[in-house]
């Protein structure tokens, strides 16, 4: 079994995000959107729609997707890819929840292997 090589940072708790809602994490000049689904899963995406950089954190969360507030693109929370006929992808970040605490890995260097 491999050791967990993630660089987890505590960013908040589950209860600080409304169900079917989102909050933002500012990290330098990056903004990452944290989403909480109806069934309490947490996802993290860069807060930019692949279409026109709309803030996904301001969208409506439904199922495991968010609809961008600017032009209604639907983005998968799991993968960051645009759904339906739209094409594009936004960066997804590793995130995990332990004891209702949310940990995010900003490094993006654990892709595979």
């Amino acid at each position: 079994m491999k050791a967990d090589t993630h660089d987890w940072k505590l960013v908040g708790t589950l209860d600080e995000i409304p169900k079917q809602g989102a909050r933002r994490v500012h990290h330098g000049d990056r903004t990452i959107a944290l989403f909480r689904t109806q069934d309490d899963q947490i996802f993290a995406l860069e807060d930019k729609c692949p279409h026109k950089n709309g803030q996904l954190s301001q969208g409506i969360v439904h199922g495991n997707c968010v609809t961008c507030p600017l032009h209604n693109w639907v983005i998968s929370l799991e993968t960051g890819t645009a759904q339906g006929t739209n094409e594009g992808r936004t960066q997804a970040y590793p995130v995990q929840v332990r004891d209702r605490k949310i940990y995010l890995d900003f490094t993006l260097n654990q892709v595979t292997c």
């Binding site: 940072k9 908040g12 600080e16 995000i17 933002r24 994490v25 990290h27 330098g28």
Partner: peptide, 16 residues
């Protein structure tokens, strides 16, 4: 109130 503030802020000036 949660609508109007980020959940957390990491200032990167020191780190980079």
């Amino acid at each position: 109130a949660h609508e109007f503030t980020p959940i957390s802020v990491f200032n990167m000036v020191a780190a980079e």
